[in-house]
Amino acid sequence: MSKSRITAIGSYVPEKRLTNVHLEKLVDTTDEWIIQRTGIKERRIAGENEFASDLAYKAVRNMMERYHASIGDVDMIIVCTMTPDFKMPSVASLVQAKLGIQNAGALDLNAACAGFTYGLHMANGLITSGLHKKILVIGAETMSKVIDYEDRSTCILFGDGGGAVLVELDETHPGFLSSYLGSEGEKGKNLYCSNFSASMFAEDIIKNDKIVQNGREVYRWAVTTVPRGIKQVLENSSMSLSDVDWFVPHSANLRMIESICKKVHFPIEKTLYSLVDYGNTSSATIPLSIDKAVLEGKLKNGDKMLLYGFGGGLAHAGVLINWSVS
């Protein structure tokens, strides 16, 4: 039984816009081609001296201003990211310093596009176990810094952004209903960003420090894995899909989301995504999608949301929550 709930949310995206028309000047593509295949119209791009910790910090500040949230007693900071400022210190430690929080643990969690749902699962577990009482969970990415803008298959997809939530102890009205996590590491060669390794699965790395994706294989994996995962999340909660008010998948590709919705017989009209204006922001897509719905007045207290992150790893994680933000 959960003993925590989300009490506040905030988000931030960089000012610079990279539209499909801009991309037409960089690679052999068109606005029509991109929209038809992905649903993306534009994405935000971090400045040369703007990094994941900056986006994370600004997302938290946005949350504090809107909800008058106190963070001085936060006792753990979890930053979900695959694009950290440094190998060390962690982005979480940099955020702790920027916010002036004095008595909090700080760690980065890298589950790529499934990062935010992994982070929520971990935060709920730490609070429910009694180890912590108040946790910041942040998804922040500067994907533009690991994109090859000569690679049409990836540069049209990704953007930068950050989202943050506050997860607090609440034994009376807990918000976490169930979760399910998984990974198929043997398929990791279909989506990777290399670092030290010179090879993967006995195959040569194509490009160092840049994202490489076999889009067709990732698509095939996602549209079979996510529906199975959704079923497991619901079984773990003894609920049905008809009880879910909103589905919030990772905003990778609108065609992929449509296929998943069709497979599970869930209306796309009740699905939240952020990719149209922000592109694929990896671990930030889900909090950006949720906050967009909050700002538009769609999301109401008492609504049940099924969040599902999936991507590099190939890792995936689903979390069913009851939305009740003060």
Rank of each mutant, 00 (worst) to 15 (best):
M256H: 06
I257Y: 15
E258C: 08
P227H: 05
S183M: 11
A222V: 02
S199I: 06
D243E: 14
L234K: 06
T224G: 05
K263E: 14
S153R: 04
S240R: 07
N214K: 11
E235R: 13
E171G: 04
F176R: 03
M200A: 09
E184W: 00
L241V: 13
D245H: 14
T154R: 00
V264D: 03
E168T: 12
K187G: 10
G163M: 12
F176C: 07
S153K: 06
G188C: 06
T154Y: 02
A164E: 12
L234P: 00
F247L: 15
Q232K: 15
A252R: 03
S153L: 04
K207V: 14
A222H: 01
S199Y: 14
F176M: 06
F196D: 11
L166S: 12
C155E: 07
E217Q: 15
F201L: 14
V223H: 10
V233Q: 00
R255P: 10
P227K: 02
N253W: 07
G162E: 11
K210Q: 15
F201P: 07
V233F: 02
A202G: 10
P249C: 03
L166A: 11
K210Y: 12
L241A: 06
E217C: 08
L181I: 05
G175M: 01
P249S: 06
D204F: 08
A222W: 01
E186K: 04
V233E: 01
G159K: 07
G175W: 04
G161H: 07
V244D: 08
L234T: 01
D245R: 15
V248N: 03
R228C: 07
V223E: 08
K187P: 05
L177W: 06
Q213W: 00
I205N: 14
L157H: 10
T172W: 08
V165W: 02
D160R: 00
K231N: 05
W246L: 03
I206Q: 14
F201N: 15
G188K: 03
C155S: 08
F176I: 10
G229P: 03
I205P: 05
L157D: 07
C193K: 09
G162D: 09
D170L: 08
A198H: 13
I206M: 12
E184C: 00
T224P: 05
L181F: 04
K189G: 08
S251N: 10
D204T: 13
S194C: 12
